[in-house]
Design a protein around this nucleic acid. Structure first.
Length: 223
DNA sequence: ATCCGGATCGCCT
DNA sequence: GGCGATCCGGATG
């Protein structure tokens, strides 16, 4: 790290931008290590950033829940591209979701950023999200993250290692604080444990037990 | 706290 | 033609 980078990191309380090599590894590892990192987008409209508290891994063409299961199309183009780049897609006719592409060019895999804990630009995030009563509802879901930060399809293919979009090193999350569960909202490969989240963090989209699994019953004590 | 339907449209079958 | 890597508001226990 250069002297300026070190000073800047100390001033902002966060570390250097993650290098492209960070993403050139197994998708599960990247998903795990993105917990605690800081996602930041400096839109023309204002800067906003937050700590990543929930991620999901999407493994490639053999993963039925991954968009790459449909093969190389216009939509999945960036999934097949170089790692460390944003794959931004549109769902349900109204929401954007952002991923970090992983592994290597030609291996279509990525990490979905499902939730962040707001750090900077709170006023702007509240505005973009329509002033929900509770701050925890600003960014506790993948569509909300993009809405709060102002991320849209215009950022599809943008690199994460330089402005205006970046992911920076944050405080490391120990294994004791990291939870794993099946992914949320998927119908294929529904039981694959590819979701990571920071335990007890209020900005996580859902607690440890996702839909499709059996909830603990009356009188049964879990945890 | 949990469940359900509606919104809304690009993408693949 | 059907279905999402979702969110929200309203109804119900």
């Amino acid at each position: 790290m250069t002297r300026n980078a070190a000073l800047s990191a100390r001033r902002s309380g966060i570390g250097p931008v993650l290098p492209r090599a960070f993403y050139e590894r197994d998708t599960e590892l990247v998903a795990r290590e993105l917990l605690g990192a800081v996602l930041r987008y400096a839109s023309p409209n204002g800067v906003a950033a937050g700590r990543i508290v929930e991620t999901e891994a999407y493994l490639g063409e053999h993963d039925g829940a991954c968009h790459a299961a449909a093969g190389l199309t216009q939509r999945t183009r960036w999934l097949y591209g170089p790692p460390g780049v944003a794959y931004v897609y549109f769902v349900y006719g109204m929401h954007w979701c952002v991923n970090a592409v992983t592994r290597a060019e030609g291996l279509p895999s990525a990490v979905l950023i499902r939730a962040i804990e707001p750090l900077h630009g709170l006023a702007r995030m509240r505005e973009r999200r329509g002033h929900p009563p509770r701050d925890r509802d600003l960014t506790n879901g993948p569509g909300k993250v993009c809405a709060a930060l102002g991320i849209t399809g215009a950022l599809n293919g943008a690199r994460f290692d330089r402005a205006p979009l970046s992911i920076r090193l944050g405080e490391a999350i120990p294994d004791s604080d990291a939870g794993i569960s099946p992914r949320i909202g998927v119908s294929r490969a529904a039981d694959w444990p590819l979701r990571w989240f920071i335990r007890d963090n209020p900005f996580v989209s859902r607690p440890a037990t996702p839909p499709g699994t059996h909830r603990p019953r009356h009188g049964v004590h879990t945890r």
